[in-house]
Design a protein around this nucleic acid. Structure first.
Lengths: 220, 220
DNA sequence: TCACTTGTAAATGGATACATTTTTTCGTTA
DNA sequence: TAACGAAAAAATGTATCCATTTACAAGTGA
């Protein structure tokens, strides 16, 4: 379990991060320091520190003398982030694979089975994320993993909105399941080249899918 | 020219960043808030903000209740950053190429000529950086460019130390010049595939070269 | 009616003072 | 002598108060 930090700025940052990733705070939303300070029973100093921590995460955007907002992405920016992931997640997967065990494979399999039958949108994207993160779990944390976590975080809102949009239409999700199964198979066979290729394709197709729905994104 | 920010925290961050990138502050060096505050005639509040800004840049590492240090990399971490660059800089170059003009080509050529005859180490790595940045200048700034700037920044110190180490031995630098010429040629010919391949190879060879000199890095 | 100005409210930036945590020092003891 | 521990010193974390900047709105003029 995650221990709550004794430092107020960290506590506030953790809580805010969870709110943003959980969808309680939408991209573009204004964040006022005093409001937050009252909410947490703290002064504005730790709130400002917390905001800067979230800037590091890419989740908050600050402008001098103007304030802070939950970061938002245009469709082009979101696509850019997917293009980056397309190039570097296969690298992380390759480095992770040697350390994965049969036990991990079983967990991955179980996650896929759950995903194939889940109805709720939030649940689906959570399982999807846990699946991919588990495939990377053979890697010690480092810059590569940090960057990828950031990219997942900053695009999470748009994944959720997209999923809600296409829910029930059956579009795209079938392919996702197929790709996941292929990916797990390549990992099990310990074929890093194949795994890299499938993962890159998976991310690429997701990006193209997102680009079919500009209405998900901010207009500016 | 770069306008000095009216906000103290930004001024301090800019100055500190320049000191770190310029080699005045070495990786691992402790940063005391009060010291900096005195140095800038400010209180510790803007100093703390500045430190958090540099954490975002990856140039400073902070630990709760313990303090801040100039970030340092082990050889493995530095190699990891080069591996990431190897995958994503070719992407940035590809996106940049269509916007480059004959004028840019001429500037790139001029930079290479200067590099081939420069004697001073600091001058060399500065020209090298300007050359590559100019090849990327066709791209609007975005997440990809930001990440790459960060990776260049966090590894800059080790490039400098390495360059000083091999100065005069003639090892490796010849290859660097050849690769740069090949790269510029591919860019001129507007051959993105070739340019991507050469650039990836260039970064990869630099990484391998660095890995031949573990003494450049922190031992922990 | 529209553009511009100005004044006021509100929000962010920063200084000082204090609280808390960590580190260091120094004395004690086995 | 080495190890343990307590007290002092130093550094970071936070609250409060004030300064400065920005945003909003009402008012004035053409």
């Amino acid at each position: 379990m995650t221990q709550e930090s004794a430092v107020a700025s960290h506590r506030i940052a953790d809580r805010l991060r969870a709110q943003i990733l959980g969808g309680e705070l939408a991209p573009g939303e204004r964040i006022r320091q005093e409001e937050l300070a009252d909410e947490f029973g703290a002064s504005r100093i730790p709130v400002r520190e917390a905001l800067r921590i979230l800037v590091t995460d890419g989740l908050v955007t600050m402008v001098s003398n103007q304030g802070a907002w939950v970061s938002s992405l245009t469709m082009e920016e979101c696509a850019e982030q997917y293009s980056i992931r397309e190039r570097i997640e296969p690298l992380l997967l390759r480095q992770s694979m040697p350390a994965l065990t049969a036990d991990t494979f079983a967990q991955l399999d179980e996650l896929l089975t759950q995903m194939e039958s889940v109805a709720e949108v939030g649940e689906f994207i959570a399982l999807d994320r846990r699946f991919h993160e588990l495939t990377y779990s053979g890697c010690p944390t480092g810059t590569l993993a940090d960057i990828i976590t950031q990219l997942w975080n900053t695009t999470q809102h748009y994944r959720r909105v997209y999923s809600e949009l296409v829910r029930g239409t059956g579009s795209g999700l079938d392919m996702t399941h197929l790709e996941h199964r292929l990916l797990l198979d390549a990992i099990r066979r310990n074929d890093p080249d194949d795994a890299e290729r499938i993962l890159a394709g998976h991310i690429r197709r997701t990006r193209l899918e997102l680009e079919k729905h500009p209405e998900v994104f901010a207009t500016t």
